[in-house]
Design a protein around this nucleic acid. Structure first.
Lengths: 407, 407
DNA sequence: CAAGCTTTTGTGGATTTCCACAAAAGCTAT
DNA sequence: ATAGCTTTTGTGGAAATCCACAAAAGCTTG
C-alpha cells in the first residue's frame, strides 16, 4: 500500500507527510537546488539546512562540496537513495538523499536528515516511494515555469538587439515577468565548441541557477553560444567578480559535465538597462578579437581589459580606405625580405613583451645583445624613435592591424 | 649721354653691351637669383659664376654666404653698387653688385667681376646707369610670368582639393603649364603668425626660389598659410630632406626677414599626383594635432612621425558616440578628486616618458620610490596591468583623447 | 676564395631598476 | 588630540639594463 496515494494540496503538505512517516526533517529541492518545500516539524536541523531554508536555495559551498564528494553525480546517475556522511566544514549533518525522476530527467531531490540511529530498509523504501510521488507534484510546477520562460526569452532578445523603448518600460516589463532588476549589469557570452544540445542546456541551467557568486537574471542560448545577463553585487569590484564567475563556470562545465567551452567574454558594466545592447556588442567584440589574437588575449575576458584592441574594428575600417599606411613598417618588411632578417618579428615581440629586453630575448631565443643590436638597426632603418611612446604605439597598432587583416 | 639709350633685342645683347663698356664679365639675375642673362666675352670667370651659368641659378651656398656677409641685405636696402670681397670658400672672386629697382621693389641684380685693378668712379657710374636701363627689360619678363602664375595657382588648388581627373591628365596639364613633374612629392604647410602681406609674399617667393635642397614645383598662399608642393630627390631619405628644408626655411624667414613662422607640417611622400589632396589633408592633420598637443609634438613636422595622433580624429569621433569609455581612467580621476592625489598626472607623465622611472620622477619632482608607490596604487585602483602594452596603449590614448576634447 | 659587409655572441663595468623594509610626514575621523 | 590610514622619502642589495668594445660567424660580390 502506498502512503502517498492521496491528493496533496501543496508541496509543503507533502513534505510534512514524508517527514512524519520517516521521523526526520525533509527538504525538497528542484534540479537546481532551489528550495521547493520543507517539513515544519520540530526536529534537529543542521546548519546547512537552516541556511538553505533561509536563502531558499542550497548554499553554493555546500553544492560544491557535494560535487567534490561525488554525491550529486551519484544522484544524477540513478534512482537509488544515497547516504551522505557528515561534512562538517559546510555544516552538513548525516543525510540521505534521493533524486526525483521523470523519464531520463532529474526534476529535483528529496533530502532527509539521518537522526540518531541508522535507517532501516523500511525507511529507505518509504523514501523511494516519496520520490516517485513527488514527480507529479514537481511536473505541475515545471509547466507553469516553461510558459513564463518563453516570454522572458523573447524579452531578453529584445533587450540584446536594442529593440527597447524607455528605461521605464524595461523596468515595468521586468516586474511583469517577475525578473529582478539589479543596479549594475553586464552581458556575457560563452562560446561552446559545438552546437548546444538539450542535455547541455540542462547542465548550463543547473550551473547558472546554482551559482551565488552573482545574479543572473536572464540568459539565453543561441547555437554555439550562451548569452547571460550578469549582475555583480558591487560596482567597484564588479568586473573581477564577473571574471571569477566566468572562470569557475567554465571549469565547472568541464569538470562536472565534460563540456568544453572555448571562451567567455563580457562587456562593460552599466547601470541603465538600455545599455544592454551595447554591453552585448562589446562582448561580441571581445570574442572577435580573441579569435583574431588568441595568444595575446588568451587570458582576457572583459571588454575593459581588451585594451587597444577595442579600437581595431574602427581603425581597420579606415585602414581599408588606404589610410594610416606606415612607411617605417614597410621599410622594415622590405629589409626583412631582402636580407632574410627578422626585424618585424623582433620589434613585435619586443613590444609584446612591454619593451622588456630579457623577456624578449628569451622569447626569441637570442642573446640580449643581439636584441639590442637589432633594435638599433630597426630604429635606423625605420627611422623610428623607440623611446617615444606615441611612435611605439603607432607601430604596434599597425603591426597588429596587419595581423588582423590576415584573419 | 646714356650709352644704354638704345633698343636691345634681348637681355643677352644688353649684358654683352655692359660687359664691353665695363671691361669685365657681367651676370644678370632676377630677384630670386635665377640667371637671366650673362655676357659672353672671353674674360676670367670665377667658379661661382661658372656654376651659376651652368645651373641657371646661383648656388644656394653662395647665396647663403652672401646673406651671412650682409651683401644681399645691403643690396635690398639701396640702389648703390656694393663691393664684395672675395669669398674663397664658395669660389666667389671680387665682385661689384647692384640691384635693379622698380618703385620700391627689387627686380633683380647685376653682377660684375672686378678684374685686376680697382674700379674707377666712371665705372661705378656706368653700372648705375646699366641698372636703370635693365629695369624696363626685366619688367617685360615679369608681365609674361604673372599671367602664367595665375593659371598655375588655379591648377594647384584643384590638385589640393582633389578636383582632378586622371593621373595622365595631371601630367598633361603640368606640361602645358611648364611645371616639372617629379617622381616623389609631399604637400607641406607653414602656419604664419599673421596674415601674409605682399611684402612677406615676396620674401617667401625669394626663399622658395633660391632653395636647392629640394624642388618646389608649386606653392600658394592662403591667409596665414603657405602651402607648398615639395619634391625630394630621393625616396629613401625624402622625409628627412623635407624635414631639414622645413627647419631651414623657418630659421631663414626669421633670421633674414624677421618673420616668425608658428609651425610647419607635411604629409606623406607619394608618387602619384592624385594623392596630392591626401598629402595635403595629412599635413593639415599634423597642424591640427600640433595645436592640440603643442608640447608633445613640438618637434614633429611630418605625418609620418605623428605616431598614434594620426588616429585621433577618427577615435575622437567614435568617442563622442559614447564608446570607449575607460573605467580605469574614471576610477583614477575619482580617486584623485577624493584624495587630492595626482595619479592621472603621474601615469600620463610616466607614459609620456616611455615608462622610464628616472625621467618621470625628475619631471614630476618626486622621489623614484614615490613614483613606484604611485604606480602600484594606480594599477590597484584602476585594475590595470602596467606591464601589458595593450592596456598601456589604451590608457594612454584615452588620456590624450581626453585632453584633445578640451582643446 | 678573399675582402668587406652585416649579424651574432661574448665580456666587463657603470648605471638604472626593482624590491623589501622602515621611518617620517600628512590626512581623516572619532 | 589621537589612532589609523595613506603617502612620501630613505637605505641597501639583487637583478636588469645599457654601453663600448671585440671576436667570431654568416652573406654577398667581384
Amino acid at each position: 500500500m502506498n502512503p502517498f496515494a492521496t491528493h496533496f494540496e501543496s508541496l509543503e503538505e507533502f513534505a510534512d507527510r514524508v517527514s512524519e512517516l520517516l521521523q526526520c526533517p525533509i527538504t525538497i529541492e528542484d534540479a537546481n537546488h532551489r528550495l521547493i518545500a520543507y517539513s515544519g516539524h520540530e526536529h534537529y536541523t543542521d546548519p546547512a539546512r537552516t541556511a538553505t531554508i533561509i536563502h531558499r536555495r542550497v548554499p553554493e559551498r555546500v553544492i560544491n562540496s557535494l560535487w567534490r564528494e561525488g554525491v550529486i553525480p551519484k544522484l544524477l546517475q540513478g534512482e537509488e537513495p544515497v547516504r551522505v556522511a557528515e561534512i562538517s566544514e559546510v555544516g552538513l549533518g548525516n543525510r540521505i538523499a534521493i533524486s526525483i525522476w521523470k523519464n531520463k530527467e532529474v526534476l529535483g531531490f528529496i533530502w532527509a536528515i539521518e537522526m540518531n540511529k541508522p535507517w532501516t530498509e523500511q525507511q529507505f523504501h518509504l523514501l523511494k516511494q516519496a520520490a516517485k510521488a513527488a514527480k507529479n507534484l514537481l511536473l505541475q510546477l515545471q509547466i507553469r515555469k516553461h510558459k513564463k520562460e518563453e516570454r522572458i526569452q523573447e524579452f531578453f532578445w529584445k533587450l540584446l538587439t536594442g529593440h527597447v523603448s524607455s528605461p521605464h518600460d524595461i523596468v515595468e516589463q521586468c516586474h511583469q515577468l517577475n525578473v529582478h532588476v539589479y543596479p549594475f549589469f553586464s552581458v556575457g557570452i560563452f562560446q561552446f565548441q559545438q552546437q548546444i544540445q538539450t542535455q547541455v542546456e540542462r547542465q548550463i541551467d543547473y550551473l547558472l541557477k546554482t551559482t551565488q557568486q552573482l545574479a543572473i537574471p536572464l540568459y539565453t542560448i543561441d547555437h554555439q553560444r550562451l548569452i547571460v545577463l550578469v549582475a555583480p553585487s558591487s560596482n567597484v569590484y564588479g568586473e573581477s567578480h564577473i571574471e571569477r564567475f566566468f572562470r569557475s563556470f567554465m571549469t565547472q562545465m568541464k569538470e562536472r559535465f565534460r563540456v568544453d567551452i572555448m571562451m567567455g567574454a563580457f562587456g562593460n558594466v552599466y547601470e541603465c538597462y538600455t545599455k544592454i545592447a551595447k554591453s552585448y556588442e562589446e562582448a561580441q567584440t571581445v570574442l572577435k578579437m580573441k579569435r583574431a589574437f588568441p595568444h595575446q588575449l588568451a587570458n582576457i575576458q572583459s571588454y575593459q581589459h581588451l585594451g587597444m584592441y577595442q579600437f581595431f574594428d574602427l581603425l581597420f575600417e579606415q585602414k581599408r580606405h588606404g589610410d594610416f599606411h606606415n612607411v617605417a613598417l614597410e621599410k622594415l618588411k622590405q629589409y626583412d625580405a631582402q636580407h632574410h632578417t627578422n626585424l618585424v618579428e623582433t620589434i613585435e615581440t619586443y613590444l609584446d613583451c612591454d619593451s622588456n629586453v630579457n623577456e624578449t630575448a628569451k622569447t626569441l631565443n637570442i642573446h640580449p645583445n643581439t636584441l639590442a643590436y637589432r633594435l638599433k638597426r630597426i630604429s635606423e632603418i625605420g627611422n623610428i624613435d623607440l623611446s617615444n611612446m606615441s611612435e611605439k604605439v603607432k607601430l604596434y597598432i599597425d603591426m597588429k592591424l596587419d595581423k588582423y587583416r590576415t584573419t
